[in-house]
C-alpha cells in the first residue's frame, strides 16, 4: 500500500488555516510527493467557517476535494469546527484539535451560549484517536497569538499522523514563512510536539 494521507483542516476565517495547508503542501513537495489542496478564500475568511482539503500521496491524485469518510486526519483550529467536519473523517482516523473555542458572533445574548467542552466531548466519543492541543498555552509560551496553525501541525506530526517529520515541517517553515517569524514558528512547532509526548 503506497503512502497516502488525506487531511482536513477546519477553522474560523482569520485563524491561519491557509498557511497551515501551504506548509504541508510545501513539505510534501520537498519530499517528492504528489499533493493537491483546496482552500476557502473569499467572504468566509471574515470569521466564517473555513475548511481546507489536503491530499498527499505517492501516486497521482485526481480531486483536491474529498468525499465523506476519506480523511485520515482532521485538524481542528476550534473544537466546534472540528465537529462540523467530522463527516470527512474515516473511522479510526486522527483528530488534532485546539482546545480553545471561538464563540460565534451572537445575534442575541441567548444564542451566545456555546461551550467548547460539549464539542470536545463529541470529538472524544466519535471513534477517532483524539489529541487536544492547548493552543493558548503554546501561544503564550512562545509569545505570539499567530502560531496556532504551526502548533497544531507540530502536534499532528508528533503523533505520526501527517506522514512528515518535524524536521520536514521545519524546512517547510523556513521556505514559506517570512524570515523574522521563522524562529517563533519553529519554537511553537516543537513546544506543541513536546506537549504531545508529555504525560496527560
Amino acid at each position: 500500500m503506497s503512502l497516502r494521507t488525506n487531511i482536513i483542516i477546519a477553522g474560523v476565517g482569520g485563524q491561519g488555516t491557509v498557511l497551515a495547508s501551504k506548509l504541508v503542501a510545501r513539505a510534501a513537495m520537498d519530499a517528492g510527493l504528489q499533493v493537491r489542496t483546496s482552500e476557502t478564500i473569499g467572504m468566509a475568511q471574515r470569521g466564517g467557517s473555513v475548511v481546507s482539503h489536503l491530499r498527499v500521496s505517492e501516486t497521482p491524485i485526481a480531486s483536491p476535494l474529498m468525499a465523506p469518510g476519506m480523511a485520515d486526519v482532521l485538524i481542528g483550529f476550534e473544537p466546534g469546527e472540528a465537529v462540523r467536519s467530522l463527516g470527512y473523517l474515516r473511522p479510526g482516523g486522527t483528530i488534532v484539535t485546539n482546545a480553545h473555542p471561538v464563540a460565534p458572533v451572537a445575534a442575541s445574548p441567548a444564542s451566545a451560549i456555546y461551550s467548547g467542552q460539549s464539542m470536545l466531548e463529541r470529538l472524544d466519543g466519535c471513534g477517532a484517536r483524539l489529541a487536544i492541543v492547548d493552543g493558548d498555552a503554546i501561544c503564550a509560551e512562545v509569545g505570539s497569538t499567530k502560531v496556532l496553525n504551526v502548533a497544531l501541525l507540530g502536534a499532528a506530526a508528533a503523533l505520526g499522523a501527517l506522514g512528515f517529520t518535524l524536521e520536514q515541517l521545519e524546512n517547510a517553515i523556513r521556505e514559506s514563512v517570512r524570515a523574522r517569524f521563522v524562529d517563533l514558528n519553529i519554537q511553537a512547532l516543537h513546544a506543541s510536539a513536546r506537549s504531545m509526548s508529555a504525560p496527560a
Binding site: 476565517g13 468566509a44 466546534g80
Partner: peptide
C-alpha cells in the same frame, strides 16, 4: 451537540 452556525462577520 451541534456546532454553532458561524456566518462570516465584519472583523
Amino acid at each position: 451537540a451541534e456546532p454553532p452556525v458561524r456566518p462570516p462577520v465584519l472583523c
